[in-house]
Simulated scan of single mutants.
Amino acid sequence: MKRGLFVGLLTLDLIYQTEYLPARNQKMVASDYAVAAGGPATNAAVAFCYLGNAAMVLAAVGVHPITHLILADLQQCGVTVADLSPDCTEPPPVSSILVTEATGERAVVSINAVKTQVTADCIPADCLQGVDIVLIDGHQMEVARAIARQAKSHNIPVVIDGGSWKPGFETVLSLADYAICSANFCPPGCYHEAEVMEYLLNLGITHIAVTRGEQPIHYWNHTQRGELEVPQVKAVDTLGAGDIFHGAFCHAILQQQFVEALEVAARVAAHSCQFFGTRRWMEEDRVDV
């Protein structure tokens, strides 16, 4: 069993499946709903744990009553939490998500970690002890930077979830071993994928991938550039697919080479898209990794 530390955002996700997005001033009844802990690092940790590993999320949680729902869900998933703000009484971030039935596309409203930023001195002692891999989603940048430095000094690989650009990311990216980014990840001054890749390569990152939904993944492996097809499925819900991709990649990269790990992650993420919400995909037959 491998152990992963997942640093970043922890939310409560309220997920509704609807026929279409509501119009202005319209009320509608959802056809299905789910409530789960969420956030990029958190969903990645759940996937990593589901695939047979031990996962810990390092995030700001606090003691607001809502946190009981978050912690209960993660406990059921086998994921532990290291709290960066154990005395905070403010409510944790809550995301409201609408998933369109016909396409599986999602619309998300969230406050993310803007109001729950903490400093590096809040990091619990020994949270890297026994850790085999670290994933950072950029939502707690000062903490992420400190963890990445510690991981680097202990030869623990660091994976970056580059869902979108966040101020200060450059200081963490320079410490990364793997950057797995979405097509929406645009550092300052970068407007095209080629510019993004050049930016990341100039930071010294040797393993880079850009996921593009159902389109092929573009990757750079040292000096090798390639394209990887992803499984084509009928998407019921794309929510969390990128996060699940990252969790599966963390699992696979500890056993396989870069391109093979991307293939595993793509299979797991595609499988998850066939189910509503971020948990039901784990209730079915285990996906082949």
Score class of each variant (00 low, 15 high):
residue 2 K to C: 10
residue 4 G to V: 03
residue 5 L to A: 01
residue 6 F to S: 06
residue 8 G to Q: 06
residue 8 G to W: 01
residue 10 L to T: 13
residue 14 L to M: 15
residue 19 E to L: 12
residue 20 Y to C: 11
residue 25 N to G: 12
residue 36 A to N: 14
residue 43 N to F: 00
residue 45 A to P: 05
residue 48 F to T: 00
residue 50 Y to E: 03
residue 53 N to A: 02
residue 54 A to I: 12
residue 56 M to G: 08
residue 57 V to M: 02
residue 60 A to M: 08
residue 63 V to Y: 03
residue 63 V to E: 09
residue 63 V to W: 01
residue 64 H to S: 07
residue 67 T to A: 08
residue 67 T to E: 05
residue 70 I to H: 02
residue 70 I to W: 07
residue 71 L to W: 04
residue 71 L to H: 03
residue 77 C to P: 07
residue 78 G to R: 10
residue 85 S to C: 11
residue 86 P to V: 07
residue 88 C to I: 10
residue 92 P to C: 08
residue 96 S to G: 12
residue 98 L to R: 05
residue 106 R to G: 03
residue 109 V to I: 10
residue 113 A to S: 11
residue 115 K to S: 14
residue 117 Q to M: 10
residue 120 A to W: 06
residue 121 D to E: 04
residue 130 G to M: 01
residue 133 I to Q: 04
residue 143 V to I: 15
residue 145 R to E: 15
residue 145 R to Q: 15
residue 146 A to L: 14
residue 146 A to T: 15
residue 147 I to H: 01
residue 147 I to D: 03
residue 150 Q to H: 10
residue 152 K to M: 00
residue 154 H to D: 14
residue 156 I to W: 00
residue 161 D to Q: 05
residue 161 D to F: 05
residue 163 G to D: 11
residue 172 V to L: 07
residue 176 A to E: 14
residue 176 A to D: 14
residue 177 D to C: 09
residue 179 A to Q: 04
residue 181 C to L: 13
residue 182 S to C: 03
residue 185 F to N: 05
residue 187 P to T: 01
residue 189 G to N: 07
residue 190 C to E: 01
residue 196 V to E: 02
residue 204 G to W: 09
residue 208 I to C: 05
residue 208 I to V: 10
residue 209 A to K: 00
residue 215 Q to S: 09
residue 221 N to T: 02
residue 222 H to E: 13
residue 223 T to E: 15
residue 226 G to P: 09
residue 227 E to R: 15
residue 227 E to C: 15
residue 228 L to E: 02
residue 229 E to G: 13
residue 230 V to Q: 04
residue 231 P to N: 04
residue 234 K to Q: 14
residue 234 K to P: 08
residue 240 G to M: 05
residue 244 I to F: 04
residue 249 F to G: 01
residue 250 C to P: 01
residue 261 A to K: 02
residue 261 A to V: 05
residue 263 E to S: 12
residue 263 E to I: 03
residue 264 V to C: 07
residue 269 A to I: 00
residue 271 H to I: 06
residue 271 H to T: 11
residue 274 Q to S: 09
residue 277 G to K: 00
residue 277 G to L: 09
residue 279 R to L: 07
residue 282 M to P: 08
residue 282 M to D: 09
residue 283 E to Y: 11
residue 287 V to G: 10
residue 289 V to K: 08
